[in-house]
Simulated scan of single mutants.
Amino acid sequence: MGIPKLTSTKYKGIGFYKDKIKGKVYIGTYRINGKLYRKIVGYENDEYRTNEKIAFLKKEEFKEKILKGTSSTKKKLFFKDIWQEYITHLRNSQYCSNKTIETKVSTYNVHYKPIFDNLNISKITNYQIQQFANNCLKTKAPKSVLNYVSDLSAFFNYAIRYKLINENPAKNIDLPKFDNERVYPLTVEESKKLFNTILNYHEELYRGVFTFLLQGRRKEEVLNITWDMIDLEKKEYTIRYEENKARKNMTYLMNDELYDILINIEDKEGYVFKSPKTKGKLENIRHAWKRIKFTAGIEKDMTIHELRHLLGYTLLNEANQTEEVTAAVLGQTTKKATKRYAKVRQNVAALGLKKAFDYLKE
């Protein structure tokens, strides 16, 4: 859990937030050799009756210990402590989306915490990581275990970067080979039937959500979009860097089908697609997806994410669009795709999307 928003004090690097039991919780913030440190340095109700001045002195003491190489954090590099520091780093750096960070936190709570929490990270061995992976493979798919090991490797790379350890124990872990490619499951006629079912679906809320997904957007991008990211005058919308995989703001032109839906939504405050019950963010669209597939007569196993595959397949194979245009429409984020995307203008991508829509409407 991240540190709440702090109230500043007159002492440099000292802020606080209020806790019902501990009173003011003082946080010391300082930077050494480019590394940002943030540490709880005392509570209003602790044995020292810490105030702003005492908090400042404690902060300076911790800072001095680190400079001298005698900080206790150098001696007790427990996995649980460095992991929390790592997650705070990711949140502050905005390197990962909120969803990605929450996934890492969930993986930690379920899989890492019971095994590694109280281990010194400098003592964790390659053999221990291999055993961890082997045990996970007993109940989890190889792709999931690969993700767990990859996240561990990124964590240990963070520790190496700040000279907490010298080697990454999560490197060269043996995992079974697997084919992660999934063949697009629908025929052309089935694709057209599903496409037109979405455009004409009787539930207005979900017609809007799934028409937006047909623009090539990912589910969380659509569910997290708010009205300040929509420009109806210019007929464009922006997926902010916090929500997309490109880690930068991505602006797209909206087609007529999407524009007609958005212009007719009465409540243009907050989330574009609101939960009918809470009026907040719409969280679950799986049941609506089942209803749409049933209406379209689609019995094959097909995930919501595969609407992107439907669009990509149509762009490349039926609408005769280039890989560059397809990458631009889908907002793909590999280095190769990103390089291509930069060369494709918004209106060219929008034209490609129109051709795909025109083909699927036939």
Rank of each mutant, 00 (worst) to 15 (best):
W289K: 13
A296P: 04
E221G: 04
A327R: 01
Y313I: 02
I239D: 12
R240T: 15
I292D: 11
I292M: 11
L316Y: 07
R218I: 06
K339A: 11
V348F: 03
N255A: 07
N255F: 01
E324G: 00
I304R: 09
I239S: 12
I298P: 02
I230Q: 09
A319F: 05
L307F: 05
A246I: 08
E242M: 13
K235I: 02
N284Q: 07
R218K: 15
A342S: 10
V222C: 13
I239H: 12
D301Q: 13
R308A: 00
Y259D: 13
L316A: 15
L315D: 03
E233V: 11
A337L: 01
A296L: 03
W227P: 03
K335Q: 11
D256P: 00
I265N: 07
A337E: 12
R286S: 12
A327C: 05
H309I: 00
K219W: 11
M229D: 14
A337T: 10
Y341E: 01
E243Y: 11
E283A: 10
T334V: 04
R340W: 00
L282P: 00
V329P: 03
E299Q: 14
E283N: 14
R218L: 08
E220T: 14
L310W: 07
K235W: 08
K219E: 15
L282Q: 02
R286Y: 08
R218C: 06
G312T: 00
V272I: 10
L353G: 08
T334K: 01
V272L: 08
T338D: 08
N255E: 11
T334P: 00
I263T: 14
I265M: 07
D267Y: 14
G331Y: 01
E324L: 01
K248R: 15
G297S: 07
K339Y: 10
E220D: 14
E299W: 10
V222R: 11
T334S: 15
